[in-house]
Design a protein around this nucleic acid. Sequence first.
DNA 1: CTAACTGCAAAGTTTTTGCAATTGC
DNA 2: GCAATTGCAAAAACTTTGCAGTTAG
Lengths: 133, 133
Amino acid sequence: MIKEGKIKKTKFSKQRDLILNILRSCSCHPTADWIFTEARKTNPTISLGTVYRNLNLLAAEGRIRELCFGKGVSLYDGDLRDHYHVRCNVCGKVEDVPHISPRVSDQQIEELTGYQIHSHRLEFSGICSECRE
Amino acid sequence: MIKEGKIKKTKFSKQRDLILNILRSCSCHPTADWIFTEARKTNPTISLGTVYRNLNLLAAEGRIRELCFGKGVSLYDGDLRDHYHVRCNVCGKVEDVPHISPRVSDQQIEELTGYQIHSHRLEFSGICSECRE
DNA sequence: CTAACTGCAAAGTTTTTGCAATTGC
DNA sequence: GCAATTGCAAAAACTTTGCAGTTAG
């Protein structure tokens, strides 16, 4: 649950900067733990708690996106451009859907529900070509 | 991750039946724990483990749906009709989107990605009218 | 009879948090 | 200097699992 109203002053921190760079430079959709392991290669003393705190902060600021498939794990995405995801139900892999125009209007949903819509997520699931064999 | 190939013989169980009825007769999107509490009112000895086992089994059989927003919790939905969800980022409430024709073609995604698509999820998020005050 | 299912409790995962020390502005 | 941030470790939250006993077919 994102607290939308909470405006907090943030300082630069090299840990946060590192996390953001890792997320921006990888093309995958990593877990917090993967980011932690990756971050340790550059900063061997960074802690997992810091990784989580910064991922939450960055997501709340809208500088990264948090994805969520199935229970348990969150995945993070540093690509803010409008795009959607496909997920393989067998191997769990998550990939971007290259380019598709949504044709779903947030405004239409606002009229239907009375919600003020900020964003939408569209996720496809099925079986990838490797797993189909 | 859903194991698609696993076909298992199932017996009737009153616990599973109860869980399914609870889910079908409520219009909300409850957590496993809420279902557990509700189930205890009818069957005071049912265990949380049994609730989880049955929710997973029912979801794997496609008799219920598992939703997932943010980290931590799964929500369950007994309504199998095609529909989408809106979620309030402030209070966390999840509601159905009354009626909308998707206009998203799974087939188009199959062509783009090479995945064999089974389903898609579309979720809107924003702020509900109560929380907007 | 026997494989599926259950309750219980213990264990597993993932994420959050309290605290004292550190750091950016 | 002060508030934001950190590392650490402990705790919290959620889900799964092993086991011995029970139940549906």
